[in-house]
Design a protein around this nucleic acid. Structure first.
Length: 241
DNA sequence: TCATTAAATTGTT
DNA sequence: AACAATTTAATGA
């Protein structure tokens, strides 16, 4: 039982617009889609609420329809390590779903979020029947691999500006998070939690990035003006460090 | 629809 | 961590 019990109880079918927000739904044939839509459920997660926890058996493959989630893990010393944020359009858990193992991380809502869940059995059925779905999952795995490698590099950076730029570039990944358009809805406090810096420091970095013309700071969110420049900030840092 | 108030978010120290 | 300024959301006439 995963959608931490209370979430599980609050499931409901998806509306048409919520279905449209699912990036892979249009890759399916009508038969496949019918079966999928029949199984898909959505639930509203409150801030701080867990969508899944380490060690629990996999029952769903999850996707963010709206809101913002945090992927983290507890190490042996009991400290929590944040891997990444998951903005709208992001689907996760395919690795563990594939192997039918237990979740290796915690997923927690940073704010009110709508989370969709596809049962693991249906996930496997789609893998067995839909080529389009397979392509999506494969691309997903590949992109995420790149992200985790990048995440390790971010952790080794001690320059806060670069850490912020890097993390932002990751969140604006169009392949993994097609729900994020030009504007990413994230507060500076939320970003601070993800990057592991104080809100003040994040604010300072954002101001610097805005001055460089990479982004524009808006109330409750950020607009990307130049994704290349954001990534370039990253690249330059590799050379320095 | 508009004005007022509360709440959230940002910018700064 | 605290504060003021700004923006949004909620409320009710």
């Amino acid at each position: 039982m995963n959608y931490d019990t209370s979430l599980h109880q609050r499931r409901r079918p998806l509306t048409t617009s919520e279905l449209d927000a699912i990036p892979w739904i249009h890759l399916l044939s009508s038969v496949e889609r019918e079966r999928t839509v029949d199984d898909l459920k959505i639930a509203d997660a409150d801030p701080g609420e867990f969508v899944c926890r380490t060690g629990r058996p996999v029952t769903y493959w999850f996707g963010v329809v709206d809101g913002l989630l945090k992927m983290s893990s507890d190490n042996a010393e009991g400290q929590t390590m944040t891997f990444t944020g998951i903005p709208p359009g992001g689907w996760f858990g395919e690795g563990t779903a594939l192997k039918r193992e237990s979740y290796r991380y915690n997923i927690q809502a940073l704010r009110n979020s709508r989370v969709a869940g596809l049962h693991v059995d249906t996930f496997h059925w789609l893998l067995d029947h839909s080529i389009g779905f397979n392509r999506f999952v494969m691309s997903q795995l590949n992109e995420r691999l790149g992200q985790f490698i990048a995440a390790r590099e971010i952790d080794r950076m001690n320059n806060p500006d670069i850490r912020v730029a890097r993390s932002l570039a990751a969140l604006f990944n169009p392949a993994l998070y097609p729900g994020v358009g030009e504007v990413l809805r994230i507060t500076q406090q939320e970003l601070a939690y993800l990057v592991g810096l104080s809100r003040q420091r994040v604010n300072e970095s954002l101001t610097a990035l805005a001055a460089a013309g990479s982004i524009r700071v808006e109330y409750g969110g950020l607009r990307v003006l130049n994704l290349q420049a954001l990534r370039a900030t990253v690249f330059a840092s590799k050379v320095v460090v």
